[in-house]
Design a protein around this nucleic acid. Sequence first.
DNA 1: AGGTTTCAGCCATTCACCCG
DNA 2: CGGGTGAATGGCTGAAACCT
Length: 218
Amino acid sequence: MDRVLIADDHPLVRDGLRAVISLAFEGCELFEAATLDEALGVLGEGAEFDLVLLDLNMPGATGFDGLDRMVAQFPATPVVVVSGSHTAALVRGALAHGAAGFVPKSLRRSAIAEALRAVLDGEVYVPADIAEEITTEDAAEASIRRRIDLLTPQQRVVFGLMVAGRLNKQIAYELDVSMTTVKAHVSAVLAKLEVFNRTQAVILANRVGFPPVIPTRK
DNA sequence: AGGTTTCAGCCATTCACCCG
DNA sequence: CGGGTGAATGGCTGAAACCT
């Protein structure tokens, strides 16, 4: 590893990363940036970088847009996200936006060095515990989708209206059937989704992005 | 025949309202 | 304020009609 850019607005964090990298990768040339524009400027100077360590929350960047801009402008440079928080959703989002790895700031020095080596070897690095959490979540969501697949077409329509927040009475009106019919469909949906009430069903729907049904009848 | 859709009837819970 | 009452709503079950 020859050239690394550390992009973080906190000098203390930059110092810490600098110490870890210079210890683990002897002779490595280190560059620093405190804002997103500064980081993009350094990368745009021409010389190739082996790695960028990017903080998601820097001046000029909110959410994943800083990562997006960097990946779009320098697709050949691996970007490792360095973050203070490390929820499964955040890690998943970072990877989806093109990050080559995710390193929590709470990680041990040796683990950070290992993570950077893994990325240099072409791997996508995620801490083991978070990877496990993501795998578990993926399995749970797959299970929800399997259960939703069991619904009949009419049950899916009713479910969609439930997700849209409609009462049984409103669903009955929208579909031009009796309320008891709607209740039967709702009961079938709850049984197939293995939940006890519509609130839990709607939560499952939102978790996997099941679309609400927008009624057409006036 | 078996699955889907529809319905009536029933019970439980929640909430607003009224009355003492 | 607390208890009784009725309406609204959610949910379950059994049964009939319909479709493939």
